[in-house]
Amino acid sequence: MGFKLLSKLLVYLTASIMAIASPLAFSVDSSGEYPTVSEIPVGEVRLYQIADGVWSHIATQSFDGAVYPSNGLIVRDGDELLLIDTAWGAKNTAALLAEIEKQIGLPVTRAVSTHFHDDRVGGVDVLRAAGVATYASPSTRRLAEVEGNEIPTHSLEGLSSSGDAVRFGPVELFYPGAAHSTDNLIVYVPSASVLYGGCAIYELSRTSAGNVADADLAEWPTSIERIQQHYPEAQFVIPGHGLPGGLDLLKHTTNVVKAHTNRSVVE
């Protein structure tokens, strides 16, 4: 069995187990497998329904001669939608809004960016022009300005110390501490036991640490421990890039980060 097929099978099995364990909360999309990078042309966006009122959005972007996937989250909030992270750029984010209108038909009224990198804030200006209120932590807003990236308009308070959590509509926002970046936030959907790890969490097929220019490698494993301790009931975990899975993604990420750190020390 090929690795790609095995990865998709694991996603399907995880979703099936969740649907059985929580039949009222989960209505997993039966329309197909989780979209992969090879299936999404740059400039297009796919939506994948995880649970009743919960979707991931998947886009792709060219970077350094390669094409990478990027995940975000959409959560229903009454007759409105909360968006977590842009679709990595203005063109993708405009396509995301169009796809949401086509498939869901509810307005996106608020959006949260989970850290300051372009795959999370690139497209904020498109959201703002569409009347979406954009939010991020003060740290993310400051770092985005320093980096020359787009800056969300509103500040999220109460997320300055490791372990801080605040309720934001249908989700809980959690600051686990520094990891992929010093400002990275985690998003949890309690009604569906869905954990969105953003770039602080890796997919299972990833074996290298990737972009760690703004990471705190020493603190990252401790931050992941905080996530595990705060959300032990999480059933569906979405990484910032690639295929979702279960809580095993947290341990896998820790292993990859520690291996990278150990290699760096040896070198």
Rank of each mutant, 00 (worst) to 15 (best):
S264K: 08
P41F: 11
L249E: 00
S264I: 08
D79H: 15
P170A: 07
R142L: 13
W55S: 01
T14W: 04
I227M: 15
A111P: 03
F26W: 06
L173E: 02
A59D: 06
P239H: 00
S155H: 14
I186T: 05
L106C: 06
G198R: 03
V67A: 07
S137H: 07
R206T: 07
L243I: 15
A144D: 04
Y188R: 00
E267I: 06
I227C: 01
K4F: 06
P239E: 00
L47H: 03
G43R: 12
H154Q: 15
S62E: 13
E233A: 13
Y34H: 12
M18K: 05
C199L: 00
I201F: 15
V166I: 10
P176E: 00
D216A: 11
T153S: 09
L24D: 08
D79W: 15
V45P: 12
Y231W: 12
F168R: 02
S31V: 13
G131A: 10
S139E: 09
A179G: 11
R226D: 04
V112Y: 03
L5R: 13
T261N: 14
R263D: 10
S16T: 08
L173H: 04
A234Q: 03
A133Q: 12
E225N: 11
I20G: 07
S208F: 12
R76A: 13
L73T: 02
S193T: 08
D64C: 04
V257H: 04
H115P: 01
G148Q: 15
E219M: 15
I84H: 00
A136N: 03
G197T: 04
H252C: 01
G245T: 02
L97N: 00
W220S: 01
R141P: 04
A213V: 12
P41Q: 06
G148D: 14
A94C: 11
K251E: 07
V256L: 15
V126I: 11
G53N: 07
S70D: 02
A87V: 01
V189N: 01
H57Q: 11
G158F: 15
H180G: 00
L247I: 13
P23W: 09
A129V: 08
L127R: 01
A111S: 15
S162N: 08
G169R: 04
G72R: 01
S193V: 06
F174E: 00
A98P: 07
F168L: 07
F3C: 05
N184F: 01
G177M: 00
H115S: 00
L156E: 03
S181A: 08
W88D: 01
A234W: 02
S31W: 09
A144G: 08
D29G: 08
N211R: 14
A192V: 07
T109M: 12
Q229A: 14
D64A: 09
T253P: 00
Y48W: 10
G2E: 07
A66V: 09
E147K: 14
D183Q: 00
S38T: 06
L97W: 03
A144Q: 04
P69Q: 05
A215W: 05
V67D: 08
L249K: 01
A213H: 07
A218Y: 10
S162P: 15
S56T: 12
R141C: 07
A59Q: 10
E39D: 07
L173V: 13
A94S: 13
I17F: 05
P152L: 03
I100N: 02
V256G: 02
A130I: 15
Y68Q: 13
L159K: 02
V126N: 05
H230P: 04
H117G: 00
S223H: 04
A51C: 09
E172H: 05
K102Y: 09
A209V: 11
W55H: 04
N184A: 01
G2K: 11
D52G: 10
L143D: 02
S62L: 12
L83I: 14
V11N: 06
T207Y: 11
Y135I: 02
Y135D: 01
M1P: 03
G53A: 12
L204Q: 06
A213F: 15
T153N: 06
A165N: 15
R76L: 10
S27P: 07
L250F: 08
L5A: 11
I201W: 02
N184L: 01
T14Q: 09
E172C: 03
P35V: 10
N262E: 06
M18S: 06
T93A: 02
S16E: 11
V121A: 03
P244S: 07
A98V: 07
S56H: 07
A19G: 10
D85T: 00
A95L: 11
A215D: 13
D85E: 07
G242V: 03
L185F: 03
I58F: 13
R76C: 04
T36S: 06
A51L: 14
G32R: 09
K91S: 13
P138N: 05
L127I: 05
L5Y: 15
G131P: 04
V266W: 09
K8F: 04
P239F: 01
A15G: 08
S205D: 10
S264L: 07
G53C: 04
P35F: 06
E33R: 08
L185W: 02
V112Q: 03
A218F: 13
H115M: 00
Y188M: 06
S264T: 07
L82F: 08
A51R: 09
A15F: 07
E44I: 11
E157D: 15
A90F: 15
T109V: 13
E145Q: 09
A21F: 06
S7M: 15
T109D: 14
S56M: 15
S56I: 05
N262M: 13
L185Y: 02
